[in-house]
Amino acid sequence: MSAATTTVARHSSRSSGLPQHQAERRLGRRLLLPTAILLTLMVGYPIVWALRLSLFSDSITGQTHLVGFDNYARALWGSDAVQFWAAVRDTALFTVAAGGLELVIGVAMALVMSHLGVFRGLVRAMILVPWAIPTAVAAVLWKWMLTPNGIVNELLGRQILWTGETTPARTAVVLIDVWKTAPFVGLLVLAGLQLIPKDLYESAKIDGAGAVRRFRSITLPLVAPAILVAMLFRVLDLMRMYDTPAILTNGANGTATLSLFTYEHAIDQAKFGYGSALSTLTFMLIFAAAFLIIRLCGVKVFASDREGSGG
């Protein structure tokens, strides 16, 4: 490998007479090419293939033909528009509600964990138990706990139809996701917290800054990149939410997420063209959300980061 590298480097610099660093850069690019092609195939191929499929009709006889954007029209303003937009609304609701709660609770968990000292390892392991349970298994467990005569109603002393009415069903989906994923957010934020140098706090203390001031002026800005990453993960994940509502309610009572809606058509009904159109729409929505988050928050976070390191 190193022999080949030097040969190529010597060869290119001799033949073209380019300055050494430019030749090296070109070589570097060439060496990256196989990985780049592999990545393109792995990431790009399914995307392009789905895009292509989404332009074809579905037919039980297997005779499909190009229909342009008919599949998209069906979802966006055609015969499925009501269900599609309801799914967008439900997905957005879950993303905002669960994402927001997970962020607040996760940050709180991280702050507690970072101050624990000796027991940190133990608490960190315990707190991750819900995260280690597969979502589908957790959903089944919760489903049984949430039955009308289940343990949750028993403890609350009330008769709530958790899976049979809109508000309780949505609440249940959000709470199950928060229960499961807030610890994960907590761990990501904890990693960010542990990177903050202790002497910053000490000098702030010497300068007379109180606990609130130290949190606002040191902790928050320095942990912001970690929070942003956690938030991105959660938003991308929540917008693809499937398991919990599929098992808990099968999409009834205002819990039909986009993924559930897509699954019903792409898998249950084996409509791969229409299903691909729905996946593409979901992909575009997620992409837009990620873009917005990075644009609105990322610029600020990374700008302040640069300021911080510069000053």
Binding site: L53, G62, Q63, T64
Partner: peptide
């Protein structure tokens, strides 16, 4: 490698 029509069942 995309020679065939998607879902071509024949």
């Amino acid at each position: 490698c995309a020679g065939s029509t998607p879902g071509d069942g024949a």
